[in-house]
């Protein structure tokens, strides 16, 4: 069993908090991990991506080969499409629907959603909206993680532990908010697939 995941977004959106949670869950389960990150110039509002590779067996390359990612997990819809060359034929595209517009030639959101809907396996989720409903606007990334959960091959308790570990020092309240955001993401994904 292995999962190769491209995490994508815009510099400053915090994709690494999702990566850290998945990473912690995977290592807790006894899996190997490699995670290539983007530091430096692109963090200033540019497109950023992280290659997260988790596996029962040793991971060699820090980079996922083109055409072999099992998932693109994106906190920004246009950015999710940028990495399609990495996705394998049965891979999942899980993306937030809220555009992050810091360029003048950003395409129509509708056109982006149409393109996303062309992908066989996809989940398009308004993570910011769901987080706002939960009165946890900063937990949109955990909603995204929840939406991706079913395809990650790791049992739920490992993620719950990871969230407790990562947010524990910020207090029980923050842990509870993030757990509920994670669960809301799981629920949304189930409904989305059964629709």
């Amino acid at each position: 069993m292995k999962r190769d995941i491209i995490l994508s977004g815009v510099g400053g959106q915090g994709i690494l908090s999702i990566a850290a949670t998945i990473g912690l869950a995977a290592v807790d389960k006894g899996w190997f991990l490699k995670q290539a990150e983007v530091h430096g110039m692109s963090q200033r509002g540019g497109d950023v991506q992280s290659h997260l590779r988790i596996s029962e067996n040793t991971v060699h390359s820090d980079l996922i080969p083109f055409g072999q990612a099992d998932m693109i997990l994106s906190v920004e819809p246009m950015e999710s499409l940028r990495y399609l060359p990495y996705l394998n034929a049965d891979g999942w595209l899980v993306t937030n629907s809220k555009p992050f517009i810091n360029i003048t030639n950003y395409p129509e959101a509708k056109a982006i959603y149409n393109e996303i809907r062309k992908i066989k396996n996809h989940i398009l989720i308004d993570a910011d909206g769901i987080a706002a409903e939960l009165k946890a606007p900063k937990s949109a990334n955990m909603v995204m993680l929840g939406a991706a959960f079913a395809f990650l091959g790791i049992e739920k308790n490992y993620f719950e532990n990871a969230i407790r570990n990562l947010f524990g020092r910020k207090g029980e309240e923050v842990v509870a908010i993030n757990l509920s955001a994670f669960n809301a993401g799981i629920e949304f994904a189930q409904q989305y697939l059964n629709r």
């Binding site: 540019g46 399609l84 060359p85 996705l87 810091n102």
Partner: peptide, 14 residues
């Protein structure tokens, strides 16, 4: 994988 759709535009750092 699939080609990058044409609508995807560059997002340089700023």
């Amino acid at each position: 994988g699939l080609p990058e759709p044409e609508m995807v535009v560059g997002r340089p750092p700023s």
